[in-house]
Write a protein that binds this DNA or RNA. Sequence first.
DNA 1: CAGAAAAATGTAAGCGATTTCAAAATAAAA
DNA 2: TTTTATTTTGAAATCGCTTACATTTTTCTG
Lengths: 335, 335
Amino acid sequence: MKRITIYDVAKEADVSLATVSRVINDSSVVREDTRIRVQQAIEKLGYKPNAIAQGLALSKTTTISIVMSEKLFGYNGKILNGLMDVAKIYNYNIMFHTTSRGITRMQDVIESIIKTRTDGVILFNDNFSEDELEVLQEYQIPMVVVGSKIGDTKLENVGNTYVDFEKMAYDLVNSYFEKGVEDITLLEDRLNASMLAELKKGVDKAFAERGKVFTQYVPYDESFKSSYVFLTEHFKKHAPSKLVIASRDSQAYAVLNACQEAGYKIPEDIELVCVNNNKYLTMTKPHISAYNIPEYDIGAVSMRLLTKMLVHDPSIKDNISIEMGYSFIPRGTTK
Amino acid sequence: MKRITIYDVAKEADVSLATVSRVINDSSVVREDTRIRVQQAIEKLGYKPNAIAQGLALSKTTTISIVMSEKLFGYNGKILNGLMDVAKIYNYNIMFHTTSRGITRMQDVIESIIKTRTDGVILFNDNFSEDELEVLQEYQIPMVVVGSKIGDTKLENVGNTYVDFEKMAYDLVNSYFEKGVEDITLLEDRLNASMLAELKKGVDKAFAERGKVFTQYVPYDESFKSSYVFLTEHFKKHAPSKLVIASRDSQAYAVLNACQEAGYKIPEDIELVCVNNNKYLTMTKPHISAYNIPEYDIGAVSMRLLTKMLVHDPSIKDNISIEMGYSFIPRGTTK
DNA sequence: CAGAAAAATGTAAGCGATTTCAAAATAAAA
DNA sequence: TTTTATTTTGAAATCGCTTACATTTTTCTG
């Protein structure tokens, strides 16, 4: 089965390939009647331009790579939706890469990004190291890092969309200080280390400003099947504090269930806030208070930013960072 | 910044491009000392073969497209993990496509699959129509459909991995018949229509064999924010039956919560089984009994099958279907 | 209606690899 | 040491498209 090429179309329409190419890319120079003739030939033969050949000719693949850690997979659905929708609008194809501890190292991913001559990359911020990314610089592949803030960097051509988790935690803790509550716990989350680091910074800062040291940081051992099991056990032994900050739904569940078993009342004795809103938080009794993060928008904005970088939009100079807002949704676990 | 091409390497190593190409593809013909010389040149220049050019020359992109419905996103994380891991092993790149009601129609996806000359496709079974897929046939792009069973098809070159949901439902219902329970409800799930259709077939069949007609099929209105809210309300009004089969975690939660509010005891008065196991089912009280589906394996097996089809493995003739097992995990919501 | 200007089309050179076939280098045989 | 067989290498065509530049066609002017 011979595949239809631009040459076949040219012959069918009795023009040169150049002309066919022009109508494909709707160049304005071609005359209306020949455009129609070519269009019909394309239709008739069912011709579909070969993006690979185009890519080679143009040194441009209209393809964007998304890189995320395998474990974050189920959690970033909405961000992905935002990314995909905007990519679709601008007609970009998406290459998908995952990193995982054992099988796929970041380096391999970078390697294949380069080999496939991807135009740009969206990278989920998960403790990557700058050194690994340097190769991308050599190839001048623009990148936007999504999730949490990246600090100063020597890298060029990198955008960033983030939620200010540090501020979120800082404000939250302060608001409880003002209510006279100082007994506060933050739960570790291995799934999203960079987010957690920001949260912790915020909490530490708030404590430091009051001349206190924050200590109630509950880590959990990864050998446990899930943080849920671990935390539930933990809180049966150690009474939780007045305010518990969870970073994920399962942690919030754990706190809720452990407290109920231990006979603590929520929110009377203990208040609970989850840093990531999702539907599961409204399936408990009481519903769990949470911060809502505009996930879809994060995806959409990130991709839009990248597309601008790709066409060297004049409004994009230097590395640009976009802060995404968030809102608190009070529910049954806070007073 | 000029990118390094095979030509640069050739000059550096003082050989022709042909030779460089040979060492890249470890052709056995090249002599050891020149191989080393070329290798060094590659190293020195940091040369990375251009996959696009290779793709053009070979009519082969070593790229596989994954197509799934946007809404299924968060639910298929583990399958995706399996797919990605195996793709990595065989060095395939992944193009990712989502379909969604408004923005992205299947046809557009197919169009870009063809344009990008993807070697094969993994399609999540979600009520696609055969007609849409016919174009892929013309281009002889192999495909494996994952999720649920596809019936007879005139399509060629399509593999299938599935869980026999029909049998699952059939056996489940029968086992309750044997215990004397005939009052059974199945909850609709719009998220995974093809799975639900299979389940319903199984239930219907079991009822039909006993000369009964199955009626307790609870649909839900999509205008509701989530099935959870709807079902919770529903069950406050209509008492659930002796056995409720939920197809998703949130549905199971709804049943559990509604029953608790209405004063029914689980599992004494009502038993509850969820068709898809996940971690959330062990965060309730009682834990929810469920069928465990080998999601990771489904992904891995599907991708492996596709890779075999791509190299025309002789063990693959005609369309091949692989049934994946499942197991029941009894927990607190069944007696 | 000739000549100039503008618009439309075609020619041919890339883009960066692979691969066939011929030529050169090396090894084996006489 | 020739001659012949075998390995290695290189030259050049090819994959399917874009585009600068040349050429042809059309439109406009006077």
